[in-house]
Design a protein around this nucleic acid. Structure first.
Length: 566
RNA sequence: GCGCCCAUAGCUCAGUGGAUAGAGCAGCAGUCUUCGGAACUGAAGGUCGGGGGUUCGAAUCCCUCUGGGCGCACCA
């Protein structure tokens, strides 16, 4: 804004020729000596104007109307325009931070906009395992960041309680139930892919016996499935609650069948000309003739979605030859449902193992005439658990996996949240179990926590000594405190860019950087030493109070606790 | 074979086309007997996987090769 106005003024004054306004970025430079904020726009303007970047920068700088929070504008070598913040303005930010408290850096960038984040969305066939939980942390943190950027956010969990896996779950519980009653029943071997080995099913079976006795001996899988589902969701919600994750809406895929959305979606696709029926071998896509002939021999006719018309590599089956839809059709119907709910932004967190699936949905949404651009899919790369430098394999179906609950028990909710968050979603994540368990300074979580703890400790000690920070003269704050304040003021930009890019890991890195700036200051800037004059003491106490506010805000944004003691 | 992701210090990773590529940990050398040390300081560590290209300027964008991960069902 500031620079844009200056450029316009320079153009009006004839110091710069006419050109299209470029996108202007202002950001903190890497070196502190280069000022607090810097702008490189003059270099980008060298080409369109045909002028020397340094001259352009000077022309712009000469027309900048310096606001009160800027103390200096400097033009440097290649053509950077550097800004320095006014120090007394900086000092006053301590009051601003304290006044805003828990809502400090609550932005209104997206005020009035509604966003929905869909995440976790695991079917209730078992407890959440570690692989899934990365999406839980990322999804919830994105939701928190969007809220901080001004959105009203709804968190949604999409699930399917029908299908083969749920039938297997019902059957598995039935076997455990009969076993619990002491009836002769064969428990399948551990390599059986249709049997769930988890210990939790034994617990369910015991409880079911206690509640229902032997009344279900003759029943099929159905009542067992219903019971297991109910219990499973209870466990999942409880687990998520331990890491401060909760959902506003649980959306059942079945409701899309009940209200006719699924068949309606198929009909509309057909009217739009994207549907044909044929056996796989006649697929006009890339399938080689004869390739599928044998395996499709004897099968009926399937309903296909001509997604190749929209650029897909091959067409997709929507309704199988046995008459049942594939997952794609209800998935498309679900996204239409979401789009019709009037959100301004839809975020969908998916694991990398589902990376092919969302494209079909996108083609479907497009075919139905919707604008897919408000849908943002975040593909989370897989988590590799590492112990003693070696990978620990996991499996959902067998019983030997590491559940999120186990992990929280071994470490803590905060450690799990931070470790799973502090990596770009695009990046593969090695979860180092040794490091996570280790409560030492190798563990960044404790380093960040300790900053908050230290602030709280000072306040506690001051209260004990009867020293208050009322009426502090913030002019007494020195260079070290200003260093922290500059870093603290970046939080707004971090939230903003993190919200725009849907990159929640940035807040995690920022938190660590902020703590890195803080700890040396804590050593250097004493507040309660007896030889410090009372005015300085008050100012420093006030400063640490503001620092605590910032740390609490950052920790809360990550869904972590802000402990006052270790 | 096709699609998505990754390759940056010994290890784990940041890096929104801009200034001398940054942290943490490990290792090395120090401080400190404290408003809770789970701390602080310093030095060292790099042809940003290879090769082309675009640009005033590339770790970042494009092409290509190599090496990894995950997918590529009439399963969900």
């Amino acid at each position: 804004m500031l620079i844009e106005k200056a450029i316009q003024a320079a153009q009006a004054a004839g110091d710069l020729p006419a050109f299209e306004m470029p996108t202007i970025e202002i950001r903190p430079p890497k070196q502190a000596a280069q000022g607090d904020y810097a702008c490189a726009v003059a270099m980008a303007l060298a080409k369109p104007t045909g002028k020397n970047p340094l001259d352009i920068a000077n022309a712009i700088a000469n027309h900048i109307q310096k606001p009160d929070f800027v103390s200096a504008v400097e033009v440097v070598k290649p053509g950077f325009i550097n800004f320095r913040l006014n120090e007394s303005w900086l000092q006053q930010q301590v009051e601003a931070i304290i006044t805003e408290g828990d809502r400090v850096f609550q932005l209104d960038t997206f005020k009035g906009k509604r966003a929905q984040v869909e995440f976790v969305s695991a079917n209730p066939t078992g407890p959440l395992h570690v692989g899934r939980s990365r999406g839980a942390m990322v999804g919830d943190t994105i939701a928190r960041i969007l809220e901080a950027a001004g959105y009203t956010v709804e968190r949604e969990y999409y699930f399917n309680n029908a299908g083969v896996q749920m039938t297997n779950l019902g059957n598995s519980l039935r076997i455990r139930y009969l076993e619990a009653l002491g009836l002769p029943v064969e428990v399948p071997a551990s390599d059986n892919t249709t049997f769930y080995q988890g210990e939790y099913l034994k617990d369910f079976a015991r409880d079911l016996v206690a509640e229902q006795g032997n009344s279900l001996v003759e029943a099929d899988w159905q009542p067992f499935k219903e019971y297991a589902e109910k219990r499973m969701f209870g466990i999942i919600k409880q687990t998520l609650a331990r890491v401060n994750v909760s959902h506003d809406v649980f959306f059942n895929e079945n409701s899309l069948y009940d209200d006719g959305s699924v068949t309606h979606t198929a009909e509309v696709l057909e009217k739009a000309g994207y549907i044909y029926r044929s056996a796989a071998s006649q697929n006009p896509g890339e399938n080689q003739p004869g390739e599928h002939d044998e395996e499709n021999a004897g099968k009926g006719v399937a309903t296909w979605f001509r997604s190749t018309a929209l650029g897909d590599a091959k067409d997709r089956v929507l309704i199988k030859s046995d008459g049942n839809p594939t997952y794609s059709l209800p998935d498309i119907a679900y996204h239409i449902n979401k789009l019709n709910r009037g959100f301004d932004l839809l975020v969908n967190i998916l694991g990398a193992d589902h990376n092919a699936q969302y494209k079909v949905v996108q083609y479907g949404v497009e075919a139905l005439g919707f604008d897919p651009s408000i849908i943002h899919v975040i593909i989370i790369q897989l988590v590799k658990m590492v112990r003693n430098g070696k990978e620990v394999k996991m499996s959902t179906r067998r019983g030997d996996y590491d559940t999120l609950d186990d992990l929280i028990d071994q470490t803590s909710a905060d450690v799990v949240r931070y470790m799973l968050l502090a990596r770009s979603p695009d990046s593969h994540l090695n979860f180092d179990l040794d490091l996570a368990v280790k409560q030492s300074n190798e563990n960044p979580v404790y380093y960040i926590h300790n900053a908050h703890v230290r602030c709280a400790g000072i306040a506690r000690e001051a209260a004990k000594q009867g020293i208050t920070d009322d009426g502090a003269d913030l002019g007494k704050l020195g260079a070290a405190e200003l260093r922290f304040l500059r870093k603290a003021l970046e939080l707004g930009d971090v939230i903003d860019s993190s919200a725009h890019e849907l990159a929640p890991h940035r807040i995690a890195f920022y938190a660590h950087e902020l703590a890195t700036v803080f700890h040396p200051i804590y050593d250097e800037v004493r507040a309660l030493q007896p030889d410090i004059d009372p005015a300085t003491q008050k100012a420093r106490l006030r400063f640490y109070r503001a620092a605590q506010v910032i740390f609490k805000r950052v920790l809360t944004l990550m869904g972590m606790s802000a402990p006052e003691r270790m």
